[in-house]
Design a protein around this nucleic acid. Sequence first.
DNA 1: TCACTTTCTGAACACTGTGTTCAGCAAAAT
DNA 2: ATTTTGCTGAACACAGTGTTCAGAAAGTGA
Lengths: 182, 182
Amino acid sequence: MDRRQQKTRTAIYDALTKLLRKRRFEDITVQEIIDEANIGRSTFYSHFETKDQLLEQMCDEMFSHVFSESLMPEKSHDFSANHEEMKALLEHILWHIKDHEDNISSIMYGESEKLFTRYFSGYLEEAFGDMISHIDIDVSSEFKKQFVIGSFINTVKWWIGNGLTQSPGEIIDAYFKCLIRK
Amino acid sequence: MDRRQQKTRTAIYDALTKLLRKRRFEDITVQEIIDEANIGRSTFYSHFETKDQLLEQMCDEMFSHVFSESLMPEKSHDFSANHEEMKALLEHILWHIKDHEDNISSIMYGESEKLFTRYFSGYLEEAFGDMISHIDIDVSSEFKKQFVIGSFINTVKWWIGNGLTQSPGEIIDAYFKCLIRK
DNA sequence: TCACTTTCTGAACACTGTGTTCAGCAAAAT
DNA sequence: ATTTTGCTGAACACAGTGTTCAGAAAGTGA
């Protein structure tokens, strides 16, 4: 790819990242991004159709890092015996989130939080997979899934909202204590 | 209060409610509300400073109905022995939500969902009160609170998102099964 | 009924932000 | 050296917001 395109693209990403540190995505104007990135107006629009598409693409990129191939569970794993493997997997995800703390924390303010939830929930359904069916509660499987994944996302949001104070291990431990009650 | 003011106000509320059935709040323009309510532009702005303030006030009114005085727990109640009283209280809340199904379901789309969550979470902290401290899990009380209230709000959102298919009783039962595990 | 007060009306306006267009310039590729 | 590709920025059309104000309409009270 043309070096110029690369340069422009990262300039835009960097500009948005910087601006997101100070205010919510929906309060940032395209003009501000353009000025911060120091590019021409039409250049921006030749790279992204809209401001929302820019955010969408940024998220895409970030989440594909957070949930990189190596993180997704393989069929061979058995989460029924004990939950240690599952805990390790989830803790791993939290470490990756910590790596992207800057961007993720910004996205968690305002409307863009929904993007986070959508992506996260999509990936988690895969990650949790059939671990959920091994939890023995007498409720519909739809409800169980909703409860397990929902409360995990909630917990992570709460963790991020508190500035990632605790360690990933602590969070996962607490989450499993609440969920499994042993 | 002047009858004209009352008329205008309900016309605006009704118009917004009707429009919310078809599209998300943030996609509705002030002009559409005005046309639907059949009032003058300046009349709208003499009643509400902004479109967001209108939504805020609508929510205020609705939630004060959903969490009417009679619903909030009295100090005398003891939730430590068994959770039946707590379950009854929460089920009661769900019935009230069902009464406002039309408006609440609309608000649950798009950005305005955050308003719902904010209000709901505020009221619930009061409703749950010290019931939370009677749940015996070895995690920080902040985490416990986050988990208990967060997963309840999640469950309710899920319920609303599914069109309130199940009965309040079923939802509360399932929620307690997941939370208490007895 | 008549004077008064309050509310409603709607066109006109200023303002902010979006997304497009296009001619000219700069950088990369061949 | 020539062609292709990408960048520039001013100008533009457009949509939506919130304000203003003079005049019409409706409510109030004697």
